[in-house]
Design a protein around this nucleic acid. Structure first.
Lengths: 229, 229
DNA sequence: ATTACTACTAAACGAGTAC
DNA sequence: TGTACTCGTTTAGTAGTAA
């Protein structure tokens, strides 16, 4: 992620690009740049030095102005920004949503399902980790959380296919990669036919979430669902 | 143009969008936002207030956090940024280039051509102004300016078609909208068959450029050529 | 002309805290 | 919990000026 201190540099870079420093060399004096950005000549000069230091631009000072060209690293920053924006604009759903609720103890069903080899194998392949045999259950309470939870249904998900068991059939399970408690990468799993309604989240992870996050029943936990993967 | 003070707000807006406030309401606490952007909770709060003040977001403060949705104006800013970047990334030429040279007196040919009704009519229609009967001639001297001038040939231009006159034929003229001397909107005109080589710019505008800009022979003048229109 | 240093000023930031 | 105020500190920005 581009950090805070880079904001102004990124903006500067964009302006330089618009002035012709993208994929070619442009002659831009610090005074001209200053006027365009409505900053002082001194600040413009300092910015250029900083950008050069970062390796975002190449700069050659001449008596008639500075010859400036955006370098590979600078191009990368602009492209990153562009693709971020593109994803945002072109998708109809947000790249991530955050839900919050309270931990509670379920019926131990999650463990049963997760340990089924047919499910487990697919989770490893498609979601990318070996699930700890058990789920963390989180109860949503506010209108906002429940509404957002319901919206998830229409977002793309990783689909873990159902299969025919000995006595019964096992249905489709949708998985959404998630960051639980701000730390652990796991997934929200939603069975089509679940005992729980849409006010409950069932979470899996490669580790025991309760243990790793030190959670007890009733504790609040944040779950950041990633909708693009 | 987004001005300098807006840049951090724009960045903030982008982050809010990534957190799901684009086209829907997201619940984001100032502390959570602060952690994501690596700023303090106080600053995050202040930013949200400023964004609301600007009309970029709608905000409803609740005891569990702030409900935030990016408003039409905010969407507009993000879209503007996106299209800027898109133009930059997808075109092979820069959106604008700046040339600099010295004013000199030509042979008065410019006035002759510009006053030809067949040319003039097209300039009014395609370039958008009634040209002052005369051109400002600018001599380029540095390698950079001449090189850049030559690159223009491959950029898109407004084409003013040639025609058959009484005694001779008049050729195609390419026009590039330009800002002359940092102030006046006019155009660079390039005749296919010109007496001047590529180290000379011939400029037209709705007014007398020499007069309006107070230019005398030998004076330096900056010409900003717009390649997207 | 330029660029960019130093010294100062203005603005942004965040700790503490009230609500 | 939350948000957002005051106020001291830090950082960014500018004027003057040298090279």
């Amino acid at each position: 992620m581009t950090d805070k201190a880079d904001w102004q540099h990124l903006y500067m870079l964009l302006k330089l690009a618009e002035m012709g420093a993208y994929n070619r060399t442009a002659k831009i004096s610090t005074e001209y740049l200053a006027k365009k950005l409505d900053i002082s000549q001194q600040t413009a000069s300092r910015y250029l030095i900083e950008l050069e230091h970062k390796g975002w631009i190449a700069r050659k000072v001449t008596p008639e102005g500075s010859l400036i060209k955006i370098e590979a690293q600078g191009n990368g920053e602009l492209q990153k920004l562009h693709s971020n924006l593109k994803v945002l604009m072109e998708k109809s759903y947000p790249p991530s949503v955050t839900l919050e609720g309270n931990v509670f103890t379920g019926l131990g069903e999650g463990a049963y399902y997760v340990s089924k080899p047919d499910y487990q194998k697919q989770i490893v392949e498609k979601v990318g980790f070996i699930p700890y045999p058990g789920t963390l259950n989180v109860k949503l309470s506010t209108d906002y959380d429940i509404k957002t939870r319901n919206e998830l249904e229409s977002y793309p998900a990783i689909e873990v296919m159902g299969f025919q068991g000995e006595n019964r059939s096992y249905g489709l399970v949708k998985c959404y990669p998630a960051i639980i408690g701000g730390k652990i990468k796991g997934a929200l799993v939603t069975a089509k036919r679940s005992h729980y309604d849409s006010s409950v989240l069932e979470l899996i992870a490669p580790v025991c979430l309760r243990k790793q996050l030190g959670l007890k029943d009733g504790n609040k936990v944040k779950v950041e669902i990633c909708t693009s993967f």
